[in-house]
Amino acid sequence: MLLRDKFCLITGASKGIGKAISEIFAKEGAIIIATGRDLESLNLMVSDLPVYSAPHLVFKMDVTKEEDVLRVFNELSQNKIFIHCIVNNAGIMEDATLQMVKTDLIHKIYNTNVLGTILPSQNAIKHFLRNRCGSIINLSSIIGTKGNLGQSIYGSSKSAIIGFTKSLSKELAPLNIRVNAIAPGFIDTDMIKGMDQKFYEKNLKAIGMRRLGKPEDVAKVALFLASDLSEYVTGQIIGVDGGMII
């Protein structure tokens, strides 16, 4: 098992990519610390996970609220639980051309996607120092690496994650803490369910492999980055996009 007895905290764990990551990590022996805003769906998700050494844990945590993040990490520390890996998966996508974007929406997207990656990472570092190792896995996007029309706010928030990943990896490498990001392409999750049909078809045609990505495709790369298989890998942005061209 690749993650036997490893405590792995996943934000936005109840559905989509977060759920797929929780499932594959649990199958590999990890103890999942599932966090998100909806406690009921988190509990439901966790109830289906295989348990090997210790039960999985669930915490209500809104990544945009510093007090929520502090509460969760303090509770873990007080119970002598020090995480080995964090997956900063929580994120939102709302599309609009820049002229049509209200400031509130910019704050909402940046608070969730950027601040919601930075705050949990900052708190996780102290846990990793206790374990003398650690892995931070951030979720960027192909929109963050390539850009796309109507997605300047979302895309720039995901580009910020790339900059954060690269700089933090340099800062933490001497401490044996690895920081990497995944840049998924067009993945079959709730995020794309409400997408305009024309836009959806256009995106599908742009994928070399001619199929949508599955959350499990992303989860497999997260597993690689969480495990010792990638023990010498840091500061990398790994695309999981089936050869998509934007």
Partner: peptide, 8 residues
């Protein structure tokens, strides 16, 4: 770097 180790 050592500051972080000190805090821990």
């Amino acid at each position: 770097i050592s500051h972080m180790i000190l805090i821990s």
